[in-house]
Design a binder for these strands. Structure first.
Lengths: 232, 232
DNA sequence: GCACTCAAAATTGTATACAGCACAATATTC
DNA sequence: GAATATTGTGCTGTATACAATTTTGAGTGC
């Protein structure tokens, strides 16, 4: 065993995806034996992976009772959005001071090249991926590994709700309007960055995220109804 | 075994303290067998604790080679300080909007009550503890568990360097001057919060942290000389 | 019905065993 | 004598076993 790429990492990645997608229902207990046979490994590496996920906020742990899926509540999602605001506004601030003209122009190129996809695709998963990719590319320009790291964690933990939000709250507004708002926010931030207008860039980013934060409570409600209703 | 309070948690707490204090030297490999006998437990729970610490950024892991202490570099410390700025400025912003008059007055009471200790004590460890306690009390008023959680992690990871900074860079400036600057920053932030002057509170907090960030490179240099020099 | 008891079953917590990998020390080749 | 092959040692990665604990559920009394 123990191929160069390692087994525990494979388990860990798999579990993280499962936890992010709430394949474990909120607060549900995780059965180690069952899960280990399902993943084709023994409990030892499984528990190592589970412990990592506890530290990352995907799971909880109670001594003597085992591992549980993290709860899902509006408050928790609001907290995650608030943390995102904290991280991403500081990222924008740093990018404004540090990114080269060239980097920013490259990013503008990336933004323009994905615009057709934004318009054509109405697959929420794909739209979310593009949005995250854009945000992470900005983050990289901050040159702060720690901010990048924290943001990745926050994104992973909030992704499920964002997806629900995209899928089900869109019915209220025409799809194209939402997409345009999203896209234009991205453009406004980037233009402000290119103009080195820090305050504008920061405040636009803030509002861009806070806008979605306010929908979180409703999204959580819908997520619950999704999770506990027989699949279609 | 397995007393109600659990063994793995005991190991975990102990290891976290050891890692925070750099009892493992930067980049040094950790010998699991030796450590497990030292801690009086087997490798299984030890590795579970080590995995948590990897996820928290205290250790690193290389498949097939084992666990290592995190590196220590100026860049990394700068990143941690920058993340602190991101988190704490947003905390102040939220506190300004959410904290009750009463909460803020209580905090002012706390601040005043610790001032004599600030003046009398010249134990860096104690000063640092008081400073952290104050910052965490502000954080609690943000009502954001996530920001509190992230800040705790950042504080734990940067504490060693902050301590070195306090201990050794103080020689340059009279102790009382430094303490006063620290104290007055705390007071200015809190006064601004009481006046609901968000911009003032945020920018003061930012400068309060950034001031210390700039000393990080020098502090890391000193930390290295401390870590690799025979104890006195 | 409802609460309580307690034994059986299931599940977690940890030690241990051992296979396989990594690295260092030694031998071998040219 | 330098470079390469080989062996040896120690450590990591994981499975498994078993003890300790929690959960379940049937039975009992009220």
């Amino acid at each position: 065993m123990t191929k160069a790429d390692s087994n525990v990492d494979r388990i860990y990645e798999k579990l993280r995806k499962m936890a992010a997608d709430f394949e474990f229902k909120p607060d549900a207990r995780i059965n180690e034996s069952a899960l280990s046979t399902e993943l084709g490994a023994s409990r030892t590496p499984l528990r190592e992976a589970l412990n990592r996920l506890v530290a990352e906020g995907f799971l909880t742990f109670q001594s003597g009772r085992g591992f549980f899926c993290r709860p899902l509540s509006p408050k928790l999602i609001l907290d995650l959005y608030e943390a995102r605001v904290a991280i991403e506004t500081e990222i924008v601030r740093l990018v404004c001071r540090r990114a080269s003209e060239e980097d920013l122009q490259d990013l503008m190129g990336f933004l323009k090249s994905t615009e057709p996809d934004y318009d054509s695709s109405d697959d929420p998963m794909e739209l979310l991926s593009m949005d995250e990719a854009y945000h992470m590319r900005i983050a990289a320009l901050s040159q702060s590994n720690e901010l990048v790291r924290i943001l990745e964690n926050l994104n992973d933990r909030v992704r499920y709700i964002r997806l629900v939000d995209l899928k089900y709250l869109r019915g209220k507004t025409p799809v194209s309007t939402q997409e345009e708002a999203q896209l234009s926010a991205h453009r406004v931030v980037l233009t402000a960055l290119i103009n080195r207008d820090e305050d504008k860039a920061v405040s636009t980013m803030r509002h861009h995220i806070e806008r979605r934060r306010d929908e979180a409570t409703e999204a959580v409600r819908i997520a619950y109804s999704q999770l506990y209703v027989p699949a279609d």
